[in-house]
Write a protein that binds this DNA or RNA. Sequence first.
DNA 1: TATTAATAGTTAATATATTAACTAAAGTCC
DNA 2: GGACTTTAGTTAATATATTAACTATTAATA
Lengths: 143, 143
Amino acid sequence: MAIEELSNSLPMMLYKALDTIMPKFRIIFKEFGITEPQARVLRILWQHETIALNELSSLSLITPPSLVGVIDRMELNGLVERNNSNIDRRKIIVNLTEKGEKLESKILPKVKKVYAEIESSMTKKDLNNTLFLLNKISLIYKK
Amino acid sequence: MAIEELSNSLPMMLYKALDTIMPKFRIIFKEFGITEPQARVLRILWQHETIALNELSSLSLITPPSLVGVIDRMELNGLVERNNSNIDRRKIIVNLTEKGEKLESKILPKVKKVYAEIESSMTKKDLNNTLFLLNKISLIYKK
DNA sequence: TATTAATAGTTAATATATTAACTAAAGTCC
DNA sequence: GGACTTTAGTTAATATATTAACTATTAATA
């Protein structure tokens, strides 16, 4: 398999994998009127309660310029709130509203069901190997 | 490693891998005034000379509504041409202009250099395993 | 063959992504 | 303490992505 062939290239295979699995998740998100980037933000906030926007950016892999709009729309939708930091006046602290909190128990079970579906389709070993290798790739240019 | 943890989830790891490698390619594309989706279209056309838009969509993993705009802009930039099919009047045939053809010898070598850089950072075996596993994932829901 | 279903391309509306530039607030260093 | 640098968040401009809906053709089938 010639790796430099476009259709077999690492980028295309990564995109193809995402195109395969993400629609399954998006169907769930749409039920609740949110998008995939918004769901990523929610999942982080379900763990953190409160978090600075820049850290939210790192964890969600959403760049700041995109994240500003994502948070804007989530705020309009009553899912999150923006607050100023007392310690560092440059920082914006994001936290969930009650509406945002309540979504966890509705969305997470359905999301986990899709994960289970994926795991059952490819052996746990393959999945772990994939994650291990993807992690290696993500470290290629670090330091 | 808890797979259902967001940061270790398959989707996030796929995104992280893409975020790691794609900027290296985009730097090249920008030199030539094109974007990443446009580069994908070019690479396909360098192999096909002429191709129907729907097949171009499948091979590039760019959905038709997005592809329409991508081709529009490439046409404006003088890289491709649209033509009607004689056989099936619904179809639009896309082909390169001379300008689009000439980019191959300039862009491909640089792209291959990045591939080589990636390969050298992670052993050929790991790369092949990754491609093999990603391929498996992309087949999960087929048939 | 008239009808119905499926396909190819497009448009529209909304949400994101990408890159560059800009403001405000900290941090550094002499 | 004032100049310089870095960081956090934002805005702007342009390009894509996503979903739904719509037009024109072609295929399928009763």
